[in-house]
Design a protein around this nucleic acid. Structure first.
Lengths: 226, 226
DNA sequence: CCAGCCTGTGAACGGAATGTGAACTGGCAC
DNA sequence: GTGCCAGTTCACATTCCGTTCACAGGCTGG
């Protein structure tokens, strides 16, 4: 995800905390010029503008963001309790606002809602481990930037293993947790799926899944070195 | 000004006070049926739905408001502080929300902002993805400049899929979200509609809808959060 | 070094999931 | 009633993939 533009710098502590808790990448800027200078190659994901300290500068920034060829969206305004009645609502300066002090979860909820409304993706639910990433919404997997074409069972197996990195599972456990508690079939089925997974991960990353002899399989590294 | 639809009846005192202070005409309703019965000739100006007392009923009402031929908007949701994290933000049920207890001025400000935004038609009336474009106002679809002659269900299905690009939906989910929560029928119905959609999209663009074996269908490609 | 077990590997089978054409149903206009 | 159209269901064809098997190779304990 591209970072959010946040004004001003330094960012009010509660706003910074809310953004961090929500897991959003962000960069603080002090001015319109700084915003242009620090803009990522793929653009900002959106903006969070705090108007408490310097309302004039904040609204100026909002206007400049809207005036771009491709207006920056979404823009979330952060204001103090005393500023609600002063809001210039007739002008299209922002998409939503939040009144501080507020719970950090409200900031997160408003950002999520904004991203949903503006069609920018809600942050996908991901499982990431090293070079591997699984997108749980789109049923797609990527290893070292290369998309993996996994079948359903391969995907489910990898999802289960990678969501418990370092932990060893017996074949029986995998069968009951991935295939279903009432599954009845040979344990070698697991072996074959593991093999195909390793093949699709590629020679370089096949070792993401390691064999624990006489026990089962493990995804990722042990937490104790090795 | 037409009155606002307010749920439930009786309306929480602070909400009623906020509406009165803002000078909004409004009518309280207890149910979807009551909302239909009390609807003014020129329709509601918008809706304020309080979800504190009975969240289930509130969300059901939101859904029914959205499902109308001309969806009722704007819809402002009123929730308690504890409900922020439970918000179903992935679903298009409301346009904005306010967390109580709050200053009555915030309610007023959000309503003003909503009317401003919806008045200027910020709400997307167009869905575009690659060569595909859906005009939600005229019920027309265009693919690569060529108009598509879609039936109602085909259009609704394509609209739902294309408004969540990349995401995989099971047949059951599609049946409940596109056909209706209470729909009871075979899942193969989805297959047939998908097939006709692909046929109408043309050989070249049939791959806009991809099959995820053992799961369901997906529109478009994955966004990896860039 | 050997015996015994465990795991990797390739191929093949069978069945589940999906694609596809066509028939059926109900509503609507004439 | 008749004909048409959209939506649903059905039957059959096809593709795909999960499972199993046989065998080869490797690890471990004695």
């Amino acid at each position: 995800m591209e970072p959010l533009l946040v004004f001003p710098d330094p960012v009010p502590p509660d706003v910074a905390q809310g953004l961090d808790l929500g897991g959003y990448p962000w960069k603080a800027v002090t001015s319109v010029e700084a915003a242009a200078r620090l803009e990522p190659e793929d653009g900002w994901a959106g903006a969070v503008v705090c108007a408490e300290q310097d309302p004039e500068a904040a609204f100026t920034l909002c206007r400049s963001l809207r005036k771009r060829d491709i207006p920056l969206e979404p823009v979330l305004l952060v204001i103090g309790v005393g500023q609600v009645t002063d809001l210039e609502l007739r002008e299209d300066l922002f998409d939503d606002f939040v009144v501080t002090p507020s719970r950090s979860s409200e900031l997160d909820a408003r950002l999520k809602h904004l991203f949903f409304r503006t069609g920018r993706g809600t942050r996908p639910e991901l499982i990431e481990y090293g070079p591997l990433a699984l997108n749980l919404e789109t049923y797609q997997a990527v290893c070292a930037g290369r998309p993996l074409d996994l079948t359903y069972m391969e995907y489910e197996l990898l999802k289960f293993l990678s969501s418990h990195p370092g932990k060893v599972f017996t074949r029986e456990t995998l069968l009951s947790r991935v295939w279903g508690y009432d599954y009845y079939g040979g344990a070698r089925t697991v072996d074959v799926h593991i093999r195909r997974l390793r093949a699709k991960l590629g020679e370089e990353h096949a070792n993401l899944i390691s064999t624990v002899r006489s026990v089962g399989y493990r995804f990722g590294e042990t937490r104790w070195g090795s």
